[in-house]
Amino acid sequence: METPYDIGNIPGPKMARVVTPEEFVKQFKKAKKPLLIVGSEISQEELRKRVEKLIDLGITTVATGGSIRYFVEDGYDEKVEVAVLHELTNMLLDENWKGFDGEGNYDFVIFLGITYYLASQMLSALKNFAPHIKTASIERYYHPNADISFKNQFKDEKFFQMVDEIIDKIGEE
């Protein structure tokens, strides 16, 4: 079993299954309406550039208030939604929420670049109270509260390789 990135953060019997980029993409492709949520850690340019590639692949993406400014600077602000993560998670909990496009809630929510402990709690809310949503962490952290998660990755190089693999595989379509 992988160690939660915050070692004491063991929520209970249901903990995320560790996946490879390939397995993640398989799950992603099964989703009808995925949503990518990105947080303040995309201030790191190497990560942000990769997120922008995912945006270019047409994945609906939401930036938290801690990250939107960077997308504005990169000219990507029209392509992303903005939300306070707490508010957004609250909306996601409501099966009848209309979503950003007015056409309904999402069924597969992906976390990337979000402050670890904040993301962990939001994933917990979704795990416990949003049976209509599957969650995935493609963070450099193992997130036990997600349904599927990458394992901890301390080396940037390796982590970026994994994200690149996702971009390539989704792009193959």
Binding site: S40, T64, G65, G66, V84, H86
Partner: peptide, 13 residues
């Protein structure tokens, strides 16, 4: 009662 991720998000909130 609401949490923000960063102070930059908190200030306008």
């Amino acid at each position: 009662l609401v949490a923000a991720e960063t102070i930059e998000e908190a200030i306008p909130l």
